[in-house]
Design a binder for these strands. Structure first.
Lengths: 245, 245
DNA sequence: ACCTCTCCCTAACAGTGTTAGTGACTGTCT
DNA sequence: AGACAGTCACTAACACTGTTAGGGAGAGGT
């Protein structure tokens, strides 16, 4: 997956008990089985039958391990990439829904991926696919780059918010801890004279129709893409934009 | 700001050294001065001249404190809300840019806000403003709710990614630690036969023009909103949608 | 004077990421 | 064969985290 990584310099000696590959694999196992909060240097090391400090031979710090895990996660999602058939809008939509489904399926994956831009093979495969799709649709390279970045930001950000439990907080002069569990009721109970629109929209803001919400945001973005200029080219060559490669 | 919070039940005794209000204020001070990583129960307590366990009298756990801080942050941003004048697109654009600027100005605010939906007065003020804006523009309540949620997700997600240092990770068969610092070079160095589009787009993907990137994503979303049906009503009453209030 | 409630205290626990220093093993060179 | 150098996992430890248990000082109500 991630290759050997640490260069063997001048010939491999006794093959080590831990490799970067095994480290990432173990990390993904722990992440899926016990969740991100339980993913510590010690727990990952234990998964490998090793003690925590050994990991620092292969990885600078936990942050670097998480970067690797992020790329590993993307690599896992690659098989689910929707095929390229010709309609960019349908394909982009499928891609977004598939990505969201993946993030919701793999435990804590969105927390690991959020804000990360891992320059590894997992990310490369996903982006290559997406860029090929957009190139075929005739988008400029600049637009394609922006779209790729924007769409992943959008989906990741959405799922991140979707997964966080809606946490109750303080309303002026009202007890917190034993407060209503439904945030909709909380909002509806706000003083309607100072927050008229908010109170009136309390229900709409807190509907549990999370899929419709996602669809709305996604389709608005896609609508915005539809008005971009495109340069249709139907040469099936596939590598139409790759120069001096 | 957040009121008294904990109800005094049956008459206030000796007025306490710590109040919910003071707690939040101290938390915000620590957050701005030392950053989120340095914000611990002990450091916030020290800011109040108190020991850590005392905080648990006012707050269930750190998570609840962070929820309160999130709402406190939003409250700080309220004065910067752009005025409502009549053009929803201009106003929404101003709002998004102002929000992003705020998130980039207040240290670690985006990390605290990300994924949180604090049902407090800070959030209420921001949302009331935004909903009033959208209501005046004639959007339906459902659309207004979706737009509000979507826009905040979009901006927050974008800034979160914007602030994270682009972390280098593994490329198949290439050393990691001493790897290139510029991620663009990394991508450009990928095998061009397996990732033709990616390699060709390496520059566009990693341009440092972060403002243009934000503008692109935002304007695409706004373009998408422009095609939504609206029900123009110019009654200046302001509370046009508030029923049985 | 007693009781009860509020609320901050000390002590402690289990856990975290991370560094220092050690030593065993392996392949290469003399 | 023996010395060397590199690889890589080990033990021990540090400073720190969130959080709970239990104690006790102060104040208001009866």
């Amino acid at each position: 997956m991630t290759g050997k990584g640490r260069a063997p310099a001048d010939g491999a000696r006794r093959r080590p008990a831990v490799t970067l590959d095994a480290l990432v694999r173990a990390g993904l196992v722990v992440l899926e089985r016990d969740g991100l909060d339980a993913l510590s240097m010690r727990s990952v090391a234990a998964e490998l039958g090793v003690r925590a400090p050994s990991l620092y031979w292969h990885v600078r710090d936990k942050e670097e391990l998480l970067d690797l895990l992020a790329d590993g996660l993307l690599g896992l999602g690659v098989p689910a990439l929707p095929p390229i058939r010709g309609d960019w809008r349908i394909e982009l939509r499928e891609l977004a829904w598939a990505f969201r489904a993946f993030l919701n399926r793999r435990r804590d994956s969105v927390r690991v991926l959020m804000g990360r831009f891992p320059a590894g093979p997992g990310m490369a495969a996903v982006m290559e696919h997406q860029l090929a799709m957009l190139d075929r649709a005739g988008f400029s390279r600049q637009d394609a780059a922006y779209i790729t970045y924007g769409l992943s930001t959008l989906v990741t950000g959405f799922v991140y918010g979707e997964q966080r439990p809606i946490s109750a907080a303080v309303v002026a002069g009202v007890p917190v801890r034993e407060a209503v569990t439904a945030i909709g009721d909380t909002i509806a109970a706000f003083p309607a004279d100072t927050y008229p629109h908010l109170v009136a929209t309390a229900r709409e803001l807190t509907t549990p129709h999370i899929n419709e919400r996602f669809e709305f945001v996604l389709e608005r973005f896609l609508d915005g893409l539809a008005v971009l200029p495109r340069n249709p080219k139907h040469d099936q060559g596939g590598t139409g934009t790759a120069e001096h490669a």
